[in-house]
Amino acid sequence: MRTPTLSKSLLGLALLLANSTQAVEVQYTNLSSLSESHQKKVQSWLDNGLKSTFKTLGTLKQPVLPVFLQPRYFAIEPVPWASVKRGRLDGIELHFHRYASESALIKDWTLYHELSHLYHPLFDYEYFWLSEGLATYLQNIIMLDNGIINYSEFKQRLRAGLKRGRLQSYSIKGPLSEVANDMWQLGAQQRVYWSGTAFFIEAELALKQQTGPYTSIAQLIKQYQQCCKQANHTAKQFLTTLDKLSKSAIFSSLFNTYAMRQDFPVITQAQLNRLRF
Rank of each mutant, 00 (worst) to 15 (best):
Leu239Tyr: 03
Ala203Gly: 06
Met143Asn: 07
His113Lys: 06
Gly196Ile: 01
Lys61Ala: 05
Ser152Met: 02
Val26Pro: 05
Asp124Leu: 09
Gln156Val: 00
Ala188Met: 03
Ser83Gly: 01
Gln269Phe: 04
Tyr137Lys: 00
Tyr112Ala: 09
Met1Thr: 11
Val266Trp: 03
Tyr99Thr: 12
Gly133Phe: 07
Phe74His: 13
Asp124Ala: 14
Ile106Trp: 09
Asn181Glu: 14
Lys155Ala: 05
Leu186Pro: 02
Leu94Pro: 05
Tyr170Lys: 06
Ser103Glu: 14
Ser83Glu: 10
Ala135Leu: 01
Ala270Gly: 07
Ser152Cys: 02
Pro4Ser: 09
Ser83Tyr: 08
Val26His: 11
Gln168Met: 09
Lys173Glu: 03
Glu132Lys: 02
Ser33Gln: 09
Lys8Arg: 15
Gln223Asn: 10
Leu89Thr: 07
Lys55Asn: 04
His233Glu: 07
Leu122Ile: 04
Ser253Ala: 10
Arg191Trp: 03
Leu60Ala: 00
Leu94Ala: 03
His97Asn: 15
Tyr224Gly: 04
Arg191Lys: 09
Pro71His: 08
Gly87Glu: 07
Tyr151Thr: 04
Pro78Met: 02
Gly165Pro: 02
Asn232His: 12
Phe96Leu: 06
Leu207Met: 08
Thr240His: 14
Leu275Met: 11
Leu254Trp: 03
Ala14Glu: 14
Ala135Ser: 12
His117Ala: 01
Lys51Thr: 06
Thr21Phe: 15
Asp145Thr: 07
Gln27Arg: 15
Leu242Met: 11
Leu158His: 10
Tyr170Ala: 05
Lys163Ile: 01
Gln168Thr: 08
Lys61Glu: 09
Pro121Met: 10
Ala218Val: 07
Val266Phe: 10
Arg72Phe: 13
Ala14Asn: 12
Leu46His: 15
Ile267Cys: 02
Ser101Ala: 10
Gln230Tyr: 10
Leu6Glu: 03
Lys40Ala: 13
Thr21Asp: 13
Phe96Tyr: 15
Leu6Gly: 09
Leu11Ser: 13
Gly161Gln: 04
Asp263Glu: 08
Ala188Trp: 08
Leu176Ala: 03
Phe255Ile: 00
Gly87Asp: 03
Arg166His: 04
Gln237Asp: 08
Lys85Val: 14
Ser248Pro: 07
Leu245Ile: 06
His120Asn: 00
Phe154Tyr: 15
His120Thr: 07
Gln226Trp: 09
Ser216Thr: 12
